[in-house]
Design a protein around this nucleic acid. Structure first.
Lengths: 339, 339
DNA sequence: TTGTACGCGTTATCAA
DNA sequence: TTGATAACGCGTACAA
């Protein structure tokens, strides 16, 4: 394999000059010299050795993507993180970086694993997707000035670089959409408020209600005291009994099934809007109106922030929030004039 | 940052000795020396520089995963390749390699892009998922002895390393499942035979029929002359008219919709088995019996074959085929005794 | 059993 | 504008 020295010899210049030709802009090179060098590179089919460049630069030029369920397999089953990866790989290429997938199936201690990865300069920084890296680990990395950006997550009490969808705006849009379409009794099935996004959603819902001049009715809101997976059938039944003509929930599939089990025609009798776009939402026999998280944009933004950190700049803002988009489908038609 | 020299100095040995301690097994090191070295590494919080290792080894220790729609976005929308990635990342970690995502959104010439990537030693070899890299490019790489393994694909007329699901066995299992459950008139909706898998599926179907003592009836088989996306409603209607009590197809969602449009109760009146597991198959209101491609296993096997190639071994066999698994769901119940 | 020296590309320095 | 050189950090063939 041809080396930079071979090229230099062939072009009759020094290795430095060849290097400055390769790395345009570092030092001016006379056009004639430059042409000779390029020609020599071509003739020798020369390609700079990536490892040598990384070594000399003290940079790997790579971004490490740490997948949520580091050692579990579950995250590969549902593809929630694919959209992020798309944005990440797109932006990484745009800015001349590579993307390395970091897994830890072996289950090594997470902090040790990440520290080792960054210290060995395998990657220049991390993108942490999802929630499987404990807060303490994130905080430790942050303290050690390890470049890292959290995706779809924050660490309460610490200002760690992160990108996140706008839960407040999303719930607001969803609710607003329903009030605009004539719904008056909008039920809300939320999560326990120990996660910040649960509260933000509730507040978005409240704001849209009050803007529409609708009262906030406790009977129309179901929020569990403790985190749970899906809402219970009973909760849905109670909302219907309270006269709900529409439901908003982040567990749209489960609620849809509950509604079916209760014999309710979704869309015709009761509108349903999902806050947490499940991939299947569009393919169901009643396509669901849902929020779409801006995953591509989040991934892209996360890369930009990470590159800022890597280059020693401070991203602005440190915690980025991007708006969600409401995808209107058949589960929330304009409300018939009377019921 | 501590270097290998610092460690050597601290431990009172040469850098070579430190290196041989790090790379266990390369050369024997006296236990006492070894202990001193390890202690020095610990004390200095030393981590070998990945780039320097790669450079010295003339190996990147990384596998490049070339995603199908290199510059399109579509592949990120449907997650068909995620299962492969899972198997790939699992096996890569197992064998001490990294996974680099290779995209080419910018749309550089594919062959140039791949050649450059391999020659720069950014990765030691490629895994090519899906079909967006043209056959000629694959053949060129193969001729240039570039380590590469095709996933879910072959190049007709050339023996390029590849892994693939067993379409024949899959269609056989699917058909056999139906004959065993008492179905006698099994309709087959296939693809144009210019793709090898289309023929293999048809043959699997035929074998299962003949094993069950059922005749092959042309009226029960719909194969278009030219490739098309989804089967037409008319094709489904014709199969029903021919008395089909079950349907087998690789476009299960489309056929399901057609059956619905024709007012047929899937499962109760006509069984439906899919050959090309769509992610949604399980979530539908009539969960579909489908084949599950062994994506994890294929990804893993592909890595093993690629590492063989990288190490100069010859994978055996060069074209690997892994069995599919039939997931029985509600769309193919045991057939009622009479119709 | 251990040490020495070389190779890779970038970049800073000094000289021409 | 260009050249010469050294350092960066590791693995490993070869010498001792």
């Amino acid at each position: 394999m041809a080396t930079i020295r071979d090229v230099a010899r062939k072009a009759g210049v020094s290795v430095a000059t060849v290097s400055y030709v390769i790395n345009e802009g570092t030092r001016a090179v006379a056009p004639a010299t430059r042409a000779r060098v390029l020609q020599a590179m071509e003739a020798l089919n020369y390609h700079p050795n990536a490892s040598a460049r990384q070594l000399a630069k003290q940079r790997s030029g790579a971004i490490g993507v740490v997948l949520a369920g580091l050692q579990s397999t579950s995250n590969f089953a549902d593809a929630y993180f694919l959209g992020y990866i798309h944005g990440i790989s797109y932006a990484a290429e745009l800015y001349g970086h590579n993307v390395v997938l970091l897994t830890n199936y072996q289950g090594a201690d997470k902090l040790t694993f990440l520290r080792q990865t960054i210290r060995s300069r395998l990657v220049d920084g991390f993108l942490l997707i999802g929630s499987s890296i404990p807060d303490e680990v994130v905080v430790s990395l942050h303290r050690e000035k390890c470049p890292a950006v959290l995706i779809a997550r924050r660490v309460p009490g610490h200002t760690v670089c992160s990108v996140q969808q706008d839960y407040f705006q999303g719930a607001y849009e969803a609710t607003h959409h329903l009030t605009e379409r004539g719904y008056r009794r909008i039920g809300f099935l939320g999560q326990a408020l120990n996660f910040s996004y649960a509260l933000e959603r509730l507040q978005g819902y409240q704001k849209a209600l009050s803007e529409a001049g609708l009262p906030y009715e406790a009977a129309l809101v179901k929020i569990p005291m403790q985190s749970r997976d899906d809402p219970a059938l009973e909760e849905v039944r109670a909302l219907l009994a309270a006269g709900a003509d529409a439901l908003i929930t982040d567990r749209e599939i489960a609620v849809l099934n509950h509604l079916r089990a209760l014999g309710v025609q979704v869309g015709d009798e009761v509108a349903l809007v999902g806050l947490d776009e499940s991939e299947a939402a569009a393919a169901l026999d009643v396509p669901l109106t849902t929020l779409r998280p801006p995953k591509f944009a989040l991934g892209r933004r996360a890369v930009e922030m990470l590159l800022d950190l890597i280059e020693g700049r401070t991203p602005e803002p440190l915690e980025a929030t991007l708006p969600m988009e409401l995808i209107v489908r058949r589960s929330s038609p304009p409300r018939p004039a009377m019921h």
